[in-house]
């Protein structure tokens, strides 16, 4: 069996990897990365969207329910957080964050109900309702936006124990803490019986039911937890990256982006969420800098963004056919090969 020396069931290599990652996140990055651009345009959106991608991963990669509406739950979380901070005096930021996740989770249960009757592509269409309904609701009822007429509301500052976290580095640290905690919780669930129940429902629902798994509870649980992650991600996204709250930021394009992150990153893996998010975010940046530095602006910016769409499309088709388990699997294979070579 596995090594006995372990913390919470994690083996030695897991713990070493975790420590290395924590050192990178909390010491190495703050020391080396000095430009605000890297924090506010790359690291912060990457971590926020990775969190949303974990949410999408839970419902789609683990529980096998084709859901498309992550951005709707993100909007619910973002506006819930805005309202909690606005209306509840002295509410600690982390409490507001958890509560907004719970609000999103409630929507998750509601919009997960169709999964009990329909599946596959039909479910995907049904879950689109969350995308449109939540954004519509926020637009329609002024209360959610505190009757602001400008359409764009500035997000409040993040204040933790009286100390405002407003610089990009400070906000980055807040996000790293939240993402680390939620990622560990997600890994624990995925490895434990919660995750096994999700995967059983995904792979063969009739057999899962015959083993005593309630499809109703398991599916709705996956939707709720998924929406919780998306809600927290949405709140962080609005408060640290957008620094404003506008329903249009959470449109269907964002939902698709998160869906692509999960597909490219690898269905059914937590690290796939991070890899996929990094790729979807960094690829356009890379393409732009190639366009500017190699071709010196000879290629029109609109053409570059079209190329981006084409490449994503091709990659998704290629991955679906040749490596349904995505980039996370490719990464595993590389690691395994290098280990063999040693």
């Amino acid at each position: 069996m596995t090594t006995k020396a372990s913390i919470l069931g994690y083996g030695k290599t897991d713990i070493t990897n975790f420590v290395i990652m924590m050192v990178i996140a909390f010491a190495f990055v703050p020391m080396v990365v000095q430009t605000d651009y890297w924090y506010s345009s790359i690291l912060i959106p990457w971590l926020c969207l990775s969190l949303a991608a974990i949410g999408q991963q839970i419902v789609m990669g683990f529980a096998g329910q084709l859901a498309l509406g992550a951005a709707g739950f993100m909007a619910a979380g973002a506006f819930a957080c805005f309202n909690f901070i606005l209306r509840v005096p002295d509410i600690p930021f982390f409490v507001a964050l958890i509560l907004s996740g719970l609000v999103a989770a409630a929507f998750g249960v509601l919009f997960g109900l169709p999964s009990l009757r329909v599946r596959g592509i039909y479910l995907m269409v049904a879950t689109l309702a969350s995308q449109f309904f939540i954004v519509w609701m926020i637009d329609k009822f002024g209360w959610f936006k505190n009757y602001d007429t400008s359409g764009i509301i500035t997000a409040q500052d993040i204040v933790i124990f009286g100390k405002p976290f407003t610089s990009p580095l400070e906000m980055y640290l807040v996000i790293v803490v939240v993402v680390t905690v939620l990622t560990i919780l997600a890994i624990n669930m995925a490895r434990g019986s919660t995750g096994r129940n999700w995967m059983a429902v995904r792979d063969m629902d009739i057999a899962a039911e015959s083993m005593g798994i309630s499809l109703l509870r398991t599916k709705l649980q996956a939707f709720a937890i998924s929406a919780f992650y998306c809600g927290v991600a949405g709140a962080l996204f609005a408060f640290t990256y957008l620094k404003s709250l506008e329903p249009v930021a959470f449109d269907i394009k964002l939902s698709f982006k998160i869906l692509f992150m999960v597909i490219l990153g690898g269905l059914g893996t937590i690290n796939g969420a991070f890899i996929g998010a990094a790729f979807i975010l960094l690829f356009p940046v890379l393409l732009n800098s190639v366009g500017n530095n190699v071709f010196h602006g000879a290629i029109d910016a609109t053409i570059i963004s079209s190329i981006e769409q084409v490449v994503f499309g091709v990659l998704i088709i290629v991955f679906m056919i040749y490596e349904p388990l995505g980039m996370a699997r490719l990464w595993d294979n590389i690691k395994r090969r290098s280990r063999k070579a040693n």
Binding site: S193, R196, N197, M199, A200, R202, D203, M204, I206, A207, A208, S210, M211, G212, I213, G268
Partner: peptide, 18 residues
């Protein structure tokens, strides 16, 4: 009606669900 993408051990563990 096995859970195809799960390992043998995980399949049997699902049997322990109750």
């Amino acid at each position: 009606a096995l859970f195809k993408r799960m390992s043998v051990l995980d399949n049997i563990l699902v049997g322990r669900r109750l």
